[in-house]
Design a binder for these strands. Structure first.
Lengths: 212, 212
DNA sequence: TAGTGTGAATGGATTCACAGCC
DNA sequence: GGCTGTGAATCCATTCACACTA
C-alpha cells in the first residue's frame, strides 16, 4: 500500500490546525475559512488549503470549513481518534512534570506506565496519578507487551538515553519522544521525535543576535 | 548590515553539530570529518559542509575539522559564546522541572528570575536554586530592565500565555521559548520558538499509523 | 589518499493564479 | 462576493559532481 507522499511539514502543521480548531470550537465558532486559520497561525491561506488537500476535500466553497467536521477528520488523519497508551522512562524532574501534564490526556494519550533505573524510586506512586507506581526499567519489555504500548517518552539523562531506546525498540515500541540531548539511533521503522531544550534556546540566541 | 540569507534549517542543524562536537570532545576526539558527523546525526556529509560553508571555511581538506576550533566557531555563530540571562514565567510542574534542568547552565543560559501569578507561590525560593524566589508577574518589566534579560521561557497554561507574552515583549524581551499550546502573536522583531508536547505526540501517532 | 568547498542540477515545498461552487 | 481546490510557476533546500588542498 503506497501512500501519496505527504510532505512532512504539512503533517506538522496539521497538528497546529487541530489545536486551533479545538480552540475555535470552545469559543463556539462552527465555521472557519483558510484565511482565518492562516491569520491565527501566521500561515498563508493557500498553504492551509494545500495541506488539507493532501488528505481530501473538506471545505465548502463560499463557506469555509465546518469546525467540528474538520476536527474529526484531522484527528483521524493524525491517528488521535482513538486513545494511545504511552509509557514514560525517567522519573526525574522532567519526567514527573510530564507525567503531571494534563494536555496529554486531553489529546488522547494516556500514560500507563513509568520506569526509572534508580532503586530508591521504584515502587513509589506518582503524585498526580496515584494508581501508577514507578517500575524498574528491566520490566519495560513485559509491560509493553502486557499493555500493548506503542508510544514512549524518554526523559532520562543523555548517557542513559540510547540504552533505554534500545530497550524500548526491542520491546516493540513504535514511536519515541526523546527529551535527552542526543541523537538516538533506532531501527528505521520506529518513529522518533526529539525535544532538546538547549537547542531551542540556541535558536533564540542566534535570532536575537541576528535581529540586533 | 545585511546578512547573507541563511536557511533556517541550517541554523537548526548547527545546534546539533555543536552538541555532537561537544560529545566528541568529551571522548577526546580532536578531529572530525563531515562524513563522521553525518553518520552520527543521520545527515549527509555534503549537507554538513554546505551548512558550515554559510558561515566560513572551517575545515582542512584531507583532514577534516578541528573539534575544538569548530566548537568555538559554532558557539560564536549561535551567540552562545557568552552567558545569556533567562527568565521563566510559570512555576507549575513544568516550570519547576525546567528550572531544575542543568543542561541550560551548561550551554551558557542562566536562569535569573522566576515569575508566577499565584499569590500562594510568591516569595517561595526555588528548591534547586535557593537564591531565587518566585516573584509576581507584575514585576516582570522591572526585573527585565534591572537584570538586562533578553530571553524568556513561558511555562504557563494556554489561557495565560498570550497575556504573559505581551508583558514580556513590552518589557523588552527579545526571544521567547513557549511551552504553552497556543500560537503566540508577537512583534516580528521578537524571536519565538515553540515546544508543544501534544503536537510531538501527534506526529508520532501519525507516523506509527503510517508505518503500520 | 582522504577530505573540504562550491557551482550546477535536482527535488520538494510554497505561492500564484484561476476555474468552479455556494 | 466569498471561498475552496488545484495545476503551473516559483522559490528554496538538498544533493551531485568535481576542482582543489593537505
Amino acid at each position: 500500500m503506497k501512500a501519496a507522499a505527504i510532505p512532512a511539514p504539512a503533517v506538522r502543521r496539521l497538528s497546529l490546525y487541530l489545536r486551533e480548531l479545538e480552540s475555535l470550537w470552545r469559543s463556539d465558532q462552527r465555521t472557519v475559512s483558510s484565511k482565518q486559520l492562516g491569520d491565527a497561525l501566521k500561515l498563508t491561506a493557500t498553504q492551509i488549503r494545500k495541506d488539507l488537500a493532501y488528505f481530501g476535500q473538506f471545505g465548502q466553497p463560499g463557506i469555509g470549513y465546518d469546525v467540528g467536521a474538520l476536527t474529526t477528520k484531522i484527528r483521524r488523519i493524525l491517528g488521535t481518534d482513538r486513545t494511545w497508551s504511552v509509557l514514560l522512562v525517567g522519573a526525574g524532574n522532567l519526567g514527573m512534570a510530564l507525567s503531571a501534564y494534563r494536555g496529554f490526556a486531553r489529546k488522547g494519550f494516556r500514560l500507563v506506565a513509568v520506569f526509572d533505573q534508580d532503586p530508591a524510586k521504584i515502587g513509589k506512586p506518582l503524585p498526580t496519578i496515584p494508581s501508577l507506581s514507578i517500575q524498574p526499567v528491566q520490566e519495560i519489555a513485559t509491560v509493553v507487551r502486557e499493555k500493548d504500548i506503542r508510544l514512549a517518552i524518554i526523559a532520562v539523562p543523555a548517557e542513559a538515553a540510547q540504552e533505554v531506546s534500545d530497550l524500548l525498540v526491542a520491546a516493540g515500541v513504535r514511536g519515541i519522544l526523546n527529551f535527552a540531548p542526543i541523537s538516538l539511533h533506532v531501527d528505521p521503522t520506529v518513529a522518533v521525535s526529539a525535544v532538546d531544550l538547549a537547542v531551542h534556546l540556541e535558536q533564540l540566541s542566534f535570532q536575537v543576535v541576528a535581529n540586533a
